[in-house]
Simulated scan of single mutants.
Amino acid sequence: YVTGPVLLAARLRSVPTCIHEQNSIPGLANRMISHFVSRIFVSIPGEYPFSEQKTVVSGNPVRQEILAAAERRQQEAVSGKTDSGETGRPLTLLIMGGSLGAHRINMLMLDVAAQLDDQQKKAVQLIHQTGTADEEKVRDGYAATGVKAEVRAFFTDMASLYSQADLVLARAGATSLAELSVMGLPAVLIPYPYAADDHQAKNAEYYVAGGGAVMYRESELDAELLGKILSQLLGDIDKLKQMALAMKNMGQPDATRRILDSCMDLVGIKR
């Protein structure tokens, strides 16, 4: 909201202005500001309440270290070094609930872990970002069931985690989805049910339609269903590869360049 007065002041002084909308359903501030800015960048294609003439599908910028990790992952895929599951190595499931974790997902995963048989425990390893409140409980729970898991309240090196993952279980925040698509990581998405205007579900729908993800509402999931979903995906290497390729095709690693080029164009600087 603090950007509104700044952008208005810029408009009054005839300074070109831009905004970026990460989500599929714009927030109130961007909806209001959109009427007087020069250009509007959006993360993914969709129907927005913005002027088509001013709107550019730029993608959502991701960090340089993730772009580098994505490039390495692509090179390894070409050389055949990422065939987990086909070489006897366990597959890696990355579980993220956003920066603060997701209590419901944490508890569901503990119940899923308790249902795994010995063969399934050998076939998969977990990396789980829990948030502070559930870290100890989740770590102890996995240990009690004999599931191999790296558990932390919060990870800072996401590029490293993405590089290890074969499948991701996550919320559907715009930044996470941009990173997953750039990395080409298939995902099981559980949108945050209390997000404004249910925008996380709308975010997820784009990636589901493109074949890179599946989405389930938190209210419809129990441990039995989630365990079945994960087991089926982790047990089907070809399906994971198809989803990974579809996710990669929806990624926009050049989002930063597109935005910068457009901004330079607005001020008459050619790059």
Rank of each mutant, 00 (worst) to 15 (best):
L67E: 14
V56N: 06
E76L: 14
M107L: 14
R73E: 05
H128Y: 11
I127P: 07
R72Y: 04
S51L: 03
G80P: 03
E65L: 00
M32T: 12
F36T: 08
P49V: 06
K122M: 13
V57Y: 06
S24M: 12
V15A: 02
Q75I: 07
T55H: 03
R89P: 02
Q129S: 11
P26S: 04
Q119C: 03
A68S: 14
S99W: 04
L94W: 07
G97I: 10
P49D: 10
E65P: 00
N23D: 14
L108P: 06
S99N: 07
L94F: 13
T130A: 04
G85M: 08
L108W: 00
Y1R: 08
V62E: 10
R73I: 10
L7F: 03
L108I: 07
R13N: 11
Y1F: 12
I66P: 02
L110E: 14
Q129T: 07
S24P: 00
I40W: 00
N60P: 01
M107H: 12
L28V: 11
I44D: 04
H103W: 00
L67I: 14
I66R: 08
E65T: 08
I127C: 08
K121A: 06
D83G: 07
S84A: 15
L93P: 10
A29I: 12
I19V: 13
L94M: 07
N106K: 06
H128Q: 15
T82C: 05
I44M: 15
V37P: 02
A9L: 11
M109R: 01
L110Y: 10
N23Q: 02
S43T: 11
A113S: 13
L8W: 13
M109K: 02
E86W: 08
R89D: 15
G59L: 08
S38G: 11
L110W: 09
F50D: 03
T82A: 04
R39E: 15
Q74G: 05
V15C: 01
P90S: 08
L67F: 00
V62G: 12
Q129K: 02
P16L: 08
A114Y: 10
R63K: 14
G97M: 10
S34K: 05
V15E: 02
A123T: 03
L100W: 00
R11Q: 08
R73F: 09
T55W: 05
P90A: 07
H103S: 12
H20S: 12
D118T: 13
G101L: 12
G46P: 08
I95A: 15
Q120T: 09
N23R: 03
L126Q: 00
Q53H: 13
Q64Y: 10
L110C: 12
C18V: 15
R63I: 04
V15Q: 07
P49R: 05
A10F: 11
D118F: 06
T55F: 01
Q53E: 15
I95D: 12
L93G: 10
V124S: 02
S24L: 11
R39P: 00
F50W: 06
Q64K: 14
K54M: 03
I95Q: 08
S79K: 15
R73K: 15
P49H: 07
T17W: 05
S84V: 02
R31I: 00
L110A: 11
L91A: 11
S51K: 00
V2M: 13
Q125I: 03
E71S: 15
Q115M: 11
A68H: 09
Y48R: 05
N23K: 03
H35L: 04
H128K: 12
A10N: 13
L100K: 10
S38T: 14
I25D: 02
A123E: 13
